[in-house]
Amino acid sequence: MLEARLDTANLFKSAVDAIKDLVQDCNFDCNDSGIALQAMDNSHVALVSMMLKAEAFSPFRCDRNIALGVNLTSLTKVLRAAGRDDTLTLKAEDAPDVLNLVFEATAQDRISEYDLKLMDIDQEHLGIPDTEYAATISMPSAEFKRITTDLMAMSESVTIEATKDGVKFSSTGDIGNGSITLRQHTPVDKPNETVEIELSEPVALTFSLKYLTNFCKAQPLSNQVKLCLSAEVPLMVEYGLEGGSYLRFYLAPKIGD
């Protein structure tokens, strides 16, 4: 059986919130290392990969592999009933029909309990190759959100160009064009505002802004976001969580001319 308790429901609420508009039905794959999720959006342009490691929970217990087939819209409805600071416990039997969720507000001695019906989801898993990316950009997640939102007003796509001088986001549309360039920036007193560019070779790729703005719904999960680019492979956008857990998005580049 699965039993996984989070000190605050916040993490799980924000993670589900971040992906619910991209994927609808997906399996939460539970085993002794934690809770993982991999799902593509309907049009097979983007892939979500989430890993909540066992260490993120206390306690965490999962004796055997359990796939929890969940409709994220339904899960969102249930999670709305959880206070951000409530403790959240997920429980399921070995071959479950339901996912049991318990929210506890210890200060108020209030306990709420929900059973969410599960579904059989036949989902194909994709193998994501280990990639040595040409460019890895770490930047404030709020800045990335601002850039994608601002450029969305200009065009439906953005070209991300990483060079030794910095990273440039540029869009060209009917009304004109716009660009934002960030240079490496490491303020000692404000680590959350760091912009770091690791570059093995310059790279420029074009992506759909519709998807990138969608990924930015994960912004509350982490102060920093990592963008990993290589020529002709999907962009990886990573929101790192405590203890090595993560929420990653992969986006296929635009191709041809």
Partner: peptide, 14 residues
């Protein structure tokens, strides 16, 4: 204009 690639052409099925 550039076309949108599919994630499935980059990542293979397990």
């Amino acid at each position: 204009a550039k076309g949108q690639g599919s994630i499935m052409s980059f990542f293979s099925k397990k």
